[in-house]
Design a protein around this nucleic acid. Structure first.
Lengths: 344, 344
DNA sequence: TTGTATGCGTTATCAT
DNA sequence: ATGATAACGCATACAA
């Protein structure tokens, strides 16, 4: 069971290790006959290069670090699955990390990844400018970094996201066109994408002469595990109801909240979409099975993942000559699915 | 920006590389003063050991391979998240792979993982005895392997799962106790866990003098992407309805199907739980937000993950002396949550 | 207590 | 077209 190495092959074939190495790497300076012998032997004995030795020598790996806030968010999960698909045929491997929106955990992840000599990193940062200097250092000195989804970050690199304000604008306006006027916006902390989405929401109201009120921005900090979000949302909505301010439509600004809100409204004996229409940001394919089926703004995870990999490969190939790059921001179009929850 | 290595530290401190290495590894044969100097310098200059060199020398890594069928299944997702939690304080890192229930993809994953010299592997196999000989070889010659969830596999090692037949028995009997007699069982392919669950289902019927009929085993091959499962399920149920055989209760035998079935029943204008009560296997915390809230048999992902890591660490520590081990099967208790979908 | 020397498996430089 | 040799960064057997 001893491992088969270049050295052992060399011994077996009466060649030098150098020749074996070259033959395995299909070097032009090795004659075909020798290559054939070597390759045949290697295959027969199931030779597999030691990635550690190779890296020690070359400093290169086929690893890609992926850093996301949560695996449990449908969008990120789907994105990662698409990444796997995109990366496998290229013989790269993913090392995924979650940050739970915490900069320190993000730091740990980045530490580990750089130590593992990853060829590149694809990241949706814990929050705006989290680990800014560290990421910059990594990107400049170590390996290329690409931002996705949460692209409100100072790092100068390619950024892949969606047009958050526009998508939210369209969704909000759709509700307005259907006759709704008391439209609430549901979101977590007021950061990054949420900001843009609130802007789109406000603009839609404004351009349709509907006054904006802070009452209708419903914050639910879904990051705080100590907080009972269900209860909080329920009471917020009841309070609005008591003040005769119950919204007749809700735009869900975050992935996880969008899924929960239907159940919570039902608990309050509210009919969807008759009493309250709902549309949410989320990538879960469950939207169809919710009751009623949830209208959703679906981010183009596949295109995002493919583009991320494509751009990263480009940067990896550029080896260090990245100082004078002009990086781009890609805002890919989302797709909105109107289902029963907005079928007024 | 040149890398700081043991050698560079040695030069800077006028010591030999060996001393540095020993100091960094807290060897007893180095005096405290030297250790302090070395450690101080290392920290100040952000020394980080090269894992590739280390592995080349020692043959050890802190990587753990995780092989699961799908990331998109709530159970597996939750399990992986728990694994992350369990493994992080031990300074191990996960490399997750999906097999899509395909033995060849599983083989590829295992190939990669062994090549990466992972310290151990935690796997829920693609199917019964998939890659049996390969896994045995890995477990005996390369690194310890632990099975979870799908533990109907010939590999002689620790196995962590739940008591599928018993849990299904209890769930089925609960429905019977609530007066339901036409109870259907919903599942994917008839393999592994599903077999056991069907057995529990049948036993419950039998012990309560309810005749079993094949009509009530509803197969939906959720692995085939070409198949429109929704449509298939809908038509299967309509057909039963036409024959006046509509079940008055459904036990969902798989994670993903359990989530879908509510929406499908609603499409058929059936009331839950009045017309059809539903209970399903699933770990999604969405169960509460479904309409109506879904009764679920929830697998103890946290305990499973913790136990898996604990056992794996034991085996890793045992270094090769695993021939005469007596391996155990752990069947951890699940928790059943009765919600509105069975509230008859 | 510290230093010297060697080798892990690979690639690369130089020679033949 | 092939071989000899060194080097990547680290840990360890042996020497001092």
């Amino acid at each position: 069971m001893s491992e088969v190495t270049i050295k052992s092959i060399a011994k077996a074939l009466n060649l030098s290790p150098a020749t074996i190495s070259r033959a395995l790497n299909d070097s032009h300076e090795i004659k075909q006959a020798t290559k054939d012998r070597v390759l045949a032997y290697a295959k027969a004995h199931n030779y597999r290069p030691n990635p550690f030795a190779k890296n020690l020598k070359t400093g290169k790996t086929n690893l890609i670090g992926v850093v996301i806030p949560f695996l449990s968010s449908p969008f990120f999960l789907e994105f990662i699955e698409e990444l796997y698909r995109a990366v496998m045929p290229l013989h790269y491997t993913l090392i995924p990390f979650q940050t739970q929106n915490q900069e320190t955990l993000e730091k740990e992840a980045l530490d580990f990844l750089t130590q593992q000599n990853v060829a590149g990193i694809i990241i949706s940062p814990a929050h705006e400018n989290s680990n800014a200097t560290f990421l910059e250092k990594i990107h400049n000195d170590t390996c290329p970094v690409i931002l996705f989804d949460r692209i409100q970050h100072g790092l100068k690199t390619h950024k892949i996201g969606i047009h958050n304000s526009m998508e939210t604008y369209k969704a909000t306006e759709e509700l307005i066109n259907k006759g709704r006027k008391k439209i609430a916006f549901l979101c977590g902390k007021d950061i990054g994408n949420t900001k843009d989405r609130i802007r789109g929401y406000k603009n839609a109201l404004h351009n349709n002469s509907i006054p904006f009120t802070e009452d209708y921005i419903i914050y639910a900090d879904y990051q705080d595990p100590n907080q009972d979000i269900d209860e909080e949302l329920r009471s917020t909505l009841s309070a609005l109801q008591d003040r005769n301010l119950l919204p007749d439509a809700i735009v869900g600004g975050t992935d996880t909240l969008s899924i929960k809100i239907l159940g919570i409204l039902a608990d309050l004996k509210l009919h969807i979409p008759e009493d309250v229409a709902v549309i949410g940001f989320t990538n879960t394919n469950l939207a169809d099975y919710l009751q009623p089926a949830l209208s959703t703004i679906k981010q183009p995870t596949q295109k995002m993942a493919n583009l991320a990999v494509e751009l990263l490969m480009e940067l990896i190939a550029k080896v260090g000559k990245r100082n004078d790059m002009d990086y781009q921001s890609f805002l890919l179009p989302s797709q909105t699915f109107y289902r029963k929850s907005t079928d007024i």
